[in-house]
């Protein structure tokens, strides 16, 4: 959303009729006195800068909370030897890309539906958005009950139509996908909201002109809505991919990475190190996670935005 705002501002400044801006001096005098910034600076420094630097330092130590010993990069070596790490990475990517992809597809379809002239539009919009407002852990526990292989509502209902449902969360081959499905259900409301904002912003003239030329509704969607909704799509992809890659709470509430290690993601591997009292090691894991997420998101962000600028 920050992206769209920036672009709007950029557009406004190009608008004719406004006073031409003065060429910026290298050191423009600020319109606020220095002390005005101090509260924000103090907060930012103590709550963000200091912990970040501290965690980089602790990642280089063996730290039991009582003793601290500097061990260089041993934690990183240990973390990459972690037997569950490879599976954790694979699961993280599966989870991140599946949830992100499905949120884009379902979010866009729902947005098209909910920005058309259907009955009870406002009500339906609220219904779609509702899961976003509910506590993640609450959602996780609810679905854990629903997905119980024997007494759960889902398998009881499936049994009613003669289908023998699997152990959604207890079968190693389904556990991660089941959680991903719940994550899509929980997060698609936000994606829909962003897409609706994007669709509503498309001027009606395009559709009117296309319809006059005999375009079908599908052609309207494919040649007008889809290209013009791209800024919204970039936002949805970035937000949901970041969320998916570092997601932890829903997985922990539903499977605790189980059965065994089969639905562990990087964040839950890190959390287990923390629980086991390997505080230095888990700091190293967080540094790795930070680097990995940055390494994935920055190129995607750059790529998607560049394409947009080209058009």
């Amino acid at each position: 959303m920050a992206i769209t705002t920036e672009r709007r501002l950029a557009r406004q400044s190009k608008r004719p009729g406004r006073l031409p801006e003065k060429p910026r001096k290298s050191r423009q005098k600020s319109q606020y006195p220095m002390w005005f910034y101090i509260p924000a600076a103090v907060l930012f420094f103590t709550l963000f800068v200091v912990p970040t630097i501290a965690s980089f330092y602790f990642s280089l130590t063996r730290w039991s909370l009582f003793d601290i010993e500097f061990i260089g990069f041993d934690n990183f070596a240990q973390f990459f030897r972690e037997p569950m790490l490879i599976q954790g990475f694979v699961n993280t990517f599966i989870f991140g890309f599946i949830t992100s992809g499905l949120k884009v597809v379902f979010g866009l379809l729902l947005a098209v539906l909910l920005s058309s002239q259907i009955m009870g539009r406002t009500f339906l919009r609220s219904v779609v958005f509702f899961p976003v407002l509910v506590s993640v852990v609450g959602v996780g526990i609810t679905f854990r009950v629903l997905m119980d292989p024997f007494d759960g509502l889902i398998n009881t209902a499936l049994a009613g139509i003669g289908v023998d449902g699997p152990g959604w969360l207890t079968d190693p081959s389904y556990a991660l996908l089941s959680v991903a499905f719940v994550e899509v259900w929980r997060g698609v409301g936000l994606a829909t909201l962003i897409f609706i904002a994007g669709i509503v912003a498309i001027p009606d003239e395009y559709f009117e002109a296309a319809t006059t030329d005999g375009a079908s509704p599908f052609q309207n969607f494919w040649h007008i809505t889809l290209p013009l909704v791209r800024p919204a799509m970039v936002t949805v992809v970035i937000l949901s991919l970041i969320g998916g890659l570092r997601s932890f709470d829903l997985i922990w509430a539903m499977t605790r990475g189980g059965p065994g290690f089969t639905s562990d993601v990087i964040a839950s591997v890190i959390f287990k190190q923390y629980q086991a009292g390997f505080y230095g090691l888990s700091s190293a894991g967080n540094v790795v996670l930070f680097v990995v997420v940055t390494a994935i998101i920055v190129p995607i962000f750059w790529f998607l935005n560049r394409k947009e600028a080209d058009q």
Binding site: P172, G257, P259, G260, F261, K272, A276
Partner: peptide
């Protein structure tokens, strides 16, 4: 070791 519970779950349910 802290991971024994997860490991025994895997062995005890045929995953490993």
């Amino acid at each position: 070791g802290p991971s024994l519970p997860q490991i025994t779950v895997e062995v005890g349910s045929g995953i490993r």
